[in-house]
Write a protein that binds this DNA or RNA. Structure first.
Lengths: 151, 151
DNA sequence: CCTTGACCTAAAGTTAGGTTTAGAAATTAG
DNA sequence: CTAATTTCTAAACCTAACTTTAGGTCAAGG
């Protein structure tokens, strides 16, 4: 093996548990930027293991790849990120996660009362949440659980 | 208008906020079963407004359409579901939601410590969660945040 | 009756996040 | 050196959950 001129894509895949194809896809989405060796093959820094790990965690938190790319943009470009750097950009994730937990908790706390009851007026119902991921795939208003607009 | 021989798909769409195309799609997925009028058009019961509302809420909870179809199968087929019926099938949703909240909370509580620190050994890290939705779209192990397998 | 708007079906298109395939070139192992 | 791996690119394919389109039918109002 070459004297440590960076990791090959296969090595990075083994280290992260990701598929090689996924790593190339992330590159196409702007999440990671390897350089090329003389033969044209991708080479990665060891710090990229951590970068991809961060991507996977952020995905579990519900962020889309474009969102993750934006968060990663907060890392320094001229040097290897320090633990402090990672901590800093993680703040945004934390807020995102707090919001999701709040939403789900609110939903759960109203589940019995709202689905079980005769409640048909939704504006006052906590299950009527225009946030979370229910949006994105647009399709209109989506009033929940009942005779919303009138009647 | 005809003397209440059920709602047309357009009326149901307005009542639920869903797109007409989405309602037809849900029918194809077995989530709702209208009958047809003499002209071949779909007709729905008023109870179907609630049925579709339930579908939307369950989706916010993270259930897939097949999963929701299975939950709805717990409703009586021979009569209009009562509030008790809805309450009963909501129990499963509640458990599902509890699990998601637990997972996210665990993730959040470990975020600072794990991403911010020098932690590179993942088997002991709480961010290594093989549950949630991270699975499904298979692609392998996915070790998180570091030099997992060896080294 | 005639027109307009709602509805019908089937099939194709869309987005996200990847995987698979095909054929060629680079690397590594022996 | 040769054979086996890896990697390369581009393009096609995949699933979920829908939407859009095309071409035709039904229903309601005047």
């Amino acid at each position: 093996m070459a004297i440590s001129e960076g990791l090959s894509i296969g090595a990075l895949a083994k280290r992260t548990g990701l598929a090689v194809s996924a790593i190339r896809y992330y590159e196409a989405q702007g999440l990671i930027s390897p350089w090329r060796n003389p033969g044209g093959q991708r080479r990665y820094l060891r710090a990229d293991i951590r970068r991809l790990s961060f991507v996977m965690i952020a995905q579990q938190f519900g962020l889309s790849l474009p969102e993750i790319r934006d968060v990663l943009a907060g890392l320094p470009g001229n040097r290897t990120p320090t633990p402090q750097d990672w901590k800093r950009i993680s703040k945004g994730l934390r807020a995102h996660l707090d919001q999701r937990i709040d939403t789900l908790t609110r939903l759960r706390d109203n589940l019995d009362g709202c689905i079980g009851c005769g409640c048909l007026s939704l504006p006052k119902c906590a299950l009527y949440n225009p946030d979370d991921r229910a949006k994105s795939k647009g399709s209109g208003p989506r009033y929940l659980m009942g005779d919303a607009p009138d009647d």
